[in-house]
């Protein structure tokens, strides 16, 4: 794999085609568990792991799977990988497992996983496919982390609460009280906060893109309407 391709896949996954704020895929877990940094990043990393592994598992068998049954086979492989992750978290990160609960098995139904496998891993060699899954997953994890951070600060006035669930009791003191004696703002913690926060993130991403284009054109042309601004979510 050439460095150029390597960079392109990485850039595509994490930034240009970001699952959370550009493709708008996998919104169900994105909106549900992004109520704190730890929850968001944990589920994001679990998803990234599943995506990388499913890319690695599906790319080498892509020529053996008949076209008609590729979707069931892909789903089967993804489901197996997710269940492995679920067992592992249940065994070694019990606290976090309880917090994330139903959203770990639900990674199977996260359409970004199947979308990448179908669009990329089923047509490319192992290494690029693995990297693509990982990059896309990390992009999603980053959005989950940022959104989680926003909601946690505004909703509870803290950062990294619950870190001890992921890293053990030693990390208990890592919790940052950003706003001391904060009464909390429930809206940010509840689902509406997720929608509003995600909306702001998408707007921010579009603004950056717009500015970039503006600069590229030497500040001369009129501002073009944002491309993909009306993208429709394809699933959950």
């Amino acid at each position: 794999m050439k460095t150029q391709q390597f960079k392109e896949i990485l850039h595509n996954g994490v930034w240009k085609q970001n699952a959370g704020v550009v493709q708008l895929l996998g919104l169900c877990p994105l909106l549900a568990v992004s109520n704190s940094v730890v929850n968001g990043i944990s589920l994001g990393l679990a998803t990234a792991f599943v995506m990388a592994m499913s890319g690695a598992a599906i790319a080498p068998i892509r020529s053996y799977v008949p076209n008609e049954i590729r979707i069931p086979v892909f789903i089967l492989i993804i489901a197996v990988l997710v269940t492995v992750v679920q067992y592992a978290m249940n065994a070694y990160m019990y606290g976090l497992y309880v917090v994330l609960g139903i959203f770990i098995p639900l990674i199977v139904t996260n359409c970004i996983v199947l979308a990448r496998v179908e669009a990329f891993a089923s047509k490319n060699p192992v290494l690029p496919s693995t990297l693509d899954g990982l990059a896309m997953g990390l992009g999603l994890a980053a959005v989950l982390g940022v959104l989680g951070g926003m909601r946690e600060i505004i909703g509870r006035g803290t950062l990294l609460s619950g870190i001890d669930l992921a890293l053990g009791d030693a990390a208990k003191n890592w919790v940052i009280h950003v706003i001391p004696d904060y009464q909390g703002f429930l809206l940010a913690i509840l689902p509406p906060g997720a929608f509003i926060g995600l909306g702001l993130l998408i707007a921010g991403k579009n603004w950056l893109k717009l500015r970039e284009e503006h600069k590229a054109r030497g500040n001369s042309a009129n501002v073009a309407p944002v491309e993909g601004g009306c993208a429709v979510s394809h699933g959950n």
Binding site: Y64, L76, V80
Partner: peptide, 9 residues
Amino acid sequence: NLLVFAVLG
């Protein structure tokens, strides 16, 4: 084919 994958899984 599907069966083989199911068994492997």
